[in-house]
């Protein structure tokens, strides 16, 4: 089999594992909606990362994405903690990220070489851009996220049930939420190159919905099976149709979720 195809397959399997594991963390900590709210920020982070990578030649876009996502997550968390209305906070961060998106796009297109292809790569990703070092990074992130789950599964469930109860019981709830933000940021930074920033946020949510609607259970193996299946089928379809992998993964995900919701609606009550 062609090396490029194998590299691509390894990429989507690892990326699928990252999405599945992260989706599980976000589900049990009841922060899925929070992750979706960050979609604007991820687009901004990816374009800004591509700009910095192109401009400096040494700073990898993954690092910029991680730092940007972490900063925005922390900003949202701290503002909400200070009783600023959540809608206002999301509106502010979305506006901020919109400005960063536009500025980064302008910089990429008019200042850096190959700007347009870099911008498009940040938006919808490309299997062709993935290097062996990207794969290594993805593998490390998979191990890190699964380790976080193994060690903090009960804590995440407990703080999501009632943060005040958890605080009164002696847990540092704020630290656990920051661990979730860090896990989210590092996972997204590792997968943007493959699936692009537009799809990455959505892929975090889809295995969760599939697991809950199709299997009606929230367990990590189910998340992994649904995430890996969706990624692999999407990749194989993209090879057959000779088209964008992220597009095919997105379409397969949407089809699975639609099927799950329909089946639940018809038979599952």
């Amino acid at each position: 089999m062609d090396t490029a195809i194998l590299l691509g397959l390894a990429s989507v399997i690892l990326a699928g594992s990252v999405f599945s594991s992260l989706g599980y963390v976000l589900t049990i900590s009841q922060t899925l909606v929070f992750a979706v709210e960050l979609v604007h920020s991820l687009v901004a982070a990816a374009l800004f990362g591509a700009l910095i990578e192109a401009a400096t030649g040494v700073v990898p876009m993954q690092l910029v994405i991680f730092l940007y996502s972490m900063s925005i997550s922390s900003l949202v968390a701290e503002l909400v903690r200070k009783n600023v209305p959540r809608d206002s906070v999301v509106a502010f961060t979305a506006s901020l990220s919109a400005v960063v998106t536009i500025a980064s796009l302008w910089g990429l297109i008019y200042v850096t070489p190959l700007g347009v292809s870099r911008a498009l790569g940040a938006l919808w990703g490309s299997i062709l851009l993935v290097t062996p070092s990207d794969l290594t990074y993805l593998a490390i992130v998979v191990i890190a996220v699964v380790t976080v789950i193994v060690f903090f599964d009960l804590e995440f469930k407990y703080i999501s049930f009632d943060p005040d109860l958890a605080t009164a019981s002696g847990l540092n709830v704020r630290a656990y939420y920051y661990l979730i933000y860090a896990t989210t940021s590092i996972s997204l930074s590792a997968t943007v190159k493959i699936y692009g920033s537009v799809l990455a946020s959505v892929l975090v949510v889809l295995p969760s919905i599939t697991a809950q609607y199709v299997f009606k259970r929230v367990e990590l193996p189910i998340y992994l099976v649904s995430g890996l299946t969706i990624s692999t089928i999407g990749y194989l379809v993209s090879l057959m149709l000779n088209t964008q992998t992220s597009l095919c993964v997105g379409v397969i995900s949407l089809a699975v979720v639609t099927l799950g919701v329909t089946l639940r609606w018809l038979y599952g009550r």
């Binding site: 469930k157 999501s160 049930f161």
Partner: peptide
């Protein structure tokens, strides 16, 4: 009413 009992705990 302040807690969030869920389907996974």
């Amino acid at each position: 009413g302040t807690s969030r009992p869920s389907s996974f705990i």
